[in-house]
């Protein structure tokens, strides 16, 4: 009986302590950053506005592999592969419906070429919802974004214009199929 009583008393006491501790917060400094009066510092890995980047040679990095589209939990990325006369893949169109995008960054994680990147820019509101649908020409920038050195076709075995078979990183020249020599 006494135990129960003390236990209940303890509960009441803890409520009172809670009240007191919360009351003390009246005299703490507020943590709020008063955006837009104060612009917060955004970290480079912040998941904001999505861009498409170019490789160090200035060519489109996106190879239209569709991995971002399939990784997207809200299915807001649609694209179509096409290729140039030398066999380099690129998207014929690349569309993100930002009115559906949840900025989860899965597309960036899925991207094997560092083409799609999320940037710290988060001010993307529009008055017309149709304006939230972005095509490739709206997202493609002229730089490499966050990753400066990676060039997918320099490590991939597929030949493209300016890079033939065996010219990628760590590749031997093409074998001679007419030879039986070891």
């Amino acid at each position: 009986m006494l135990k129960i009583f003390l236990h209940q008393l303890n509960i009441i006491w803890s409520q009172i302590v809670s009240l007191w501790l919360v009351f003390l917060h009246l005299f703490h400094k507020s943590d709020t950053v008063e955006y837009p009066d104060v612009k917060p510092h955004m970290f480079p890995r912040w998941r904001g506005r999505i861009i498409l980047t170019r490789d160090p040679d200035g060519e489109e990095r996106c190879v239209a592999c569709n991995l971002c589209a399939v990784a997207c939990p809200v299915d807001c990325i649609a694209l179509q592969k096409t290729e140039d006369e030398d066999g380099r893949w690129y998207p014929e169109f690349f569309r993100i419906n930002f009115s559906r995008c949840i900025m989860c960054g899965f597309c960036e994680e899925a991207c094997p070429t560092h083409a799609i990147q999320l940037t710290p820019d988060f001010e993307m509101a529009e008055y017309v919802r149709q304006d939230m649908v972005w095509e490739k020409e709206h997202m493609l920038i002229d730089g490499t974004g966050k990753y400066h050195d990676y060039n997918f076709y320099k490590v991939a075995g597929k030949a493209i214009g300016g890079k033939g078979k065996g010219e990628a990183l760590d590749e031997l020249p093409p074998t001679d199929r007419r030879s039986l020599m070891p």
């Binding site: 919360v22 009351f23 917060h25 009246l26 703490h28 400094k29 507020s30 943590d31 709020t32 008063e34």
Partner: peptide
């Protein structure tokens, strides 16, 4: 409530 929560 804001003040109690360290907000504005």
């Amino acid at each position: 409530l804001g003040f109690f929560n360290d907000r504005v």
